[in-house]
């Protein structure tokens, strides 16, 4: 068992087989730096619970492919990314920090799918980006490729 500590001082016990899906922790264990609790100053307990849920489910991924449980795992993944936008970003940050490749793939793809059809205004709002382009600069980009700003799929809602 490996002990992880979130930045709000909560401790979690995780099986080693699950936690080594994180390259970062795997390296720590190999270097003998994981004998006591591993502090994770960038991750809060809410996010860490999600990450551990994913790790535990994916622990037997190789086995699942053999026994035909892939569909089950696919369904879990679909349900897993069905979370709020802010929450999804917290998980991406955590997956990036812990270096969990598959989780990073899954969450980034979900984020991309959600952004794909958004309008420029909606993207700015979703990612809290301040527009620093002048009106002329903006018009120039639009004139450059007007087709990219048209179409029935473009969605101006923020969610």
């Amino acid at each position: 068992m490996v002990k992880l500590k979130s930045n709000d001082d909560k401790e979690f016990e995780v099986e080693e087989a699950a936690v080594i899906q994180s390259e970062m922790i795997k390296n720590m264990i190999e270097d003998g730096c994981a004998t006591s609790v591993i502090p994770l100053p960038n991750i809060d307990s809410k996010t860490l619970i999600k990450v551990i849920e994913y790790l535990n489910k994916h622990i037997n991924m190789g086995k699942a492919a053999e026994t035909g449980e892939e569909d089950d795992l696919k369904e879990f993944d679909e349900q897993f990314v069905n979370m709020g936008w802010e929450e999804l970003f917290d998980v991406i940050m955590a997956a990036n920090y812990l270096n969990i490749h598959e989780l990073m793939e899954l969450c980034c793809q979900s984020a991309a799918d959600r952004l794909k059809n958004k309008s420029v205004r909606a993207v700015r709002e979703m990612l809290k980006i301040t527009n620093d382009l002048t009106e002329e600069e903006e018009q120039e980009i639009i004139n450059d490729a007007p087709w990219a700003f048209e179409g029935p799929e473009i969605d101006d809602t923020v969610n």
Partner: peptide, 24 residues
């Protein structure tokens, strides 16, 4: 950036309008 390169071309061409750093 890990999210952005998963987007289709049409979205990216549009999102150059989000801000200066996105355009760059």
């Amino acid at each position: 950036m890990d999210v952005l390169f998963r987007l289709p071309v049409k979205s990216l061409v549009r999102f150059r309008c989000v801000s200066k750093s996105w355009k760059t």
